[in-house]
Computed example of a mutant assay.
Amino acid sequence: MRDAVIVDAVRTPIGKRNGSLADVHPADLGAHVLKALADRVGFEPATVDDVVWGCVSQVGDQAGSLGRVSVLAAGWPESVPSSTVDRRCGSSQQSVHFGAGLVVAGQYDIAVVGGAESMSRVPMGSAARDGAPYSASVLERYGVDDMNQGFAAEMVAAKWGLSRTRLDEYSARSHERTAVAADAGTFEGQIAPLAGLRHDEGLRRSTSVETLANLKPAFRPDGVITAGNASQISDGAAALLITTSELAAANGWQPMARVHTAVLAGDDPVMMLTAPIAATVKALQKSGLSPQDIGAFEVNEAFAPVPLAWQAEFGVGDDVLNPLGGAISVGHPLGASGAILMTRLVHHMRDRGIRYGLQTMCEAGGMANATILELL
């Protein structure tokens, strides 16, 4: 029976909005990690069956099938095809699912998966600027005038009783954990420096509960969601090589992890940030594992209520939930975030000898991916 293994994973440092990576075309962000991956592993790009690439805002600089343009920008042979995936924030995690599934099915032997997003060059919401993403029939079905992630985050905080102080405490912890990991050199083996940037640019070492408390609510005058307890707008890219154990051995490659379980879930599209809970339940049921079997959880920090509500449902310890910080401390470059998180997760698992890791992402429209990796 065929399996799907991750041979290696590499990412750019995450650049803050209008920061060090703002002048880099998103196709060149992608090209950079594609070339870095090939150099690290030593594979011939011509042997790649497909490059499955995540990107959310597919307009402007990201309109031309970003995966294909990135392949060409990397100087790879014209014979290497690519597809560009949009599952909102989970786009490049879905790229992993598509690549792994097709490898297991025997349709691909070697797949490169990942994604890129330049939110500096293509601002969030650009694709919907001149349209109405939710039709009147959908809004009527749910009895709302709009579906907004910020309002959804407020709803999640209210439902799980998460105070402003609790959210700010979590957010300060995210920066602290990233600072500790960065100072220990944890990210050096996974980052391909670019444009003079060697480290994730959004980290604010001076962040504290006290400084976060001074920020004004972003969505409601009496709300609890601020710029400080939400993910940062940013730029970045990541790429992973997926093949089978047999083919990896034949090429002399030592895989890092197996894609053990990959699932999807849908949930309330108004309170659209809760689907990671349903996706995690589904992943655990499908895998036969329990939360106690998992040594590291990456629950994307789109807003602080997302991982905290998730944690309340599963009762996992603080030590295994987002152990390296997350999107609050370093940023959330939309279509790249799934692959960036998975790169961080698989390297963390290898560094710490963790057998199982689980990653899940909330996505607009009330969806989520969940992926369980097994260390090899």
Results as ranks from 00 to 15, higher is better:
78 E>K: 09
271 M>W: 02
307 P>T: 02
315 G>V: 11
199 H>D: 15
169 E>L: 10
285 Q>F: 03
121 R>P: 07
154 E>R: 01
119 M>C: 08
363 E>A: 00
61 D>R: 14
237 A>V: 07
369 N>W: 03
188 E>C: 04
230 A>M: 04
16 K>P: 00
126 S>Q: 08
165 T>S: 14
89 C>A: 14
291 P>I: 10
83 S>Q: 10
331 G>K: 01
285 Q>T: 12
289 L>M: 10
100 A>F: 13
246 E>N: 09
158 A>H: 10
19 G>A: 08
242 I>G: 00
217 P>L: 12
156 V>T: 12
242 I>H: 00
80 V>M: 07
131 G>Y: 06
280 T>N: 03
353 G>L: 06
362 C>T: 04
27 A>H: 07
179 A>G: 13
222 D>E: 14
331 G>V: 06
206 S>I: 06
82 S>T: 08
246 E>F: 07
196 G>P: 10
318 D>T: 11
50 D>N: 14
64 G>F: 14
223 G>Y: 10
336 A>I: 05
333 P>L: 13
64 G>C: 11
266 G>M: 06
85 V>H: 01
255 P>H: 01
179 A>V: 07
197 L>H: 06
251 N>G: 15
57 S>C: 11
18 N>D: 13
6 I>E: 00
223 G>M: 09
14 I>G: 09
240 L>W: 01
133 P>M: 07
335 G>M: 04
176 E>P: 00
347 H>S: 06
19 G>V: 09
112 V>C: 10
303 F>P: 00
15 G>L: 10
368 A>P: 01
344 R>F: 02
369 N>C: 12
249 A>L: 09
352 R>P: 04
130 D>N: 14
94 Q>R: 14
12 T>F: 03
23 D>K: 11
261 T>N: 03
173 R>P: 02
332 H>I: 03
2 R>C: 05
96 V>M: 08
28 D>N: 14
18 N>P: 04
247 L>M: 12
264 L>I: 09
112 V>H: 04
19 G>F: 06
356 Y>W: 13
103 V>C: 05
286 K>I: 02
76 W>Q: 06
265 A>C: 03
279 A>I: 01
136 A>R: 15
55 C>P: 03
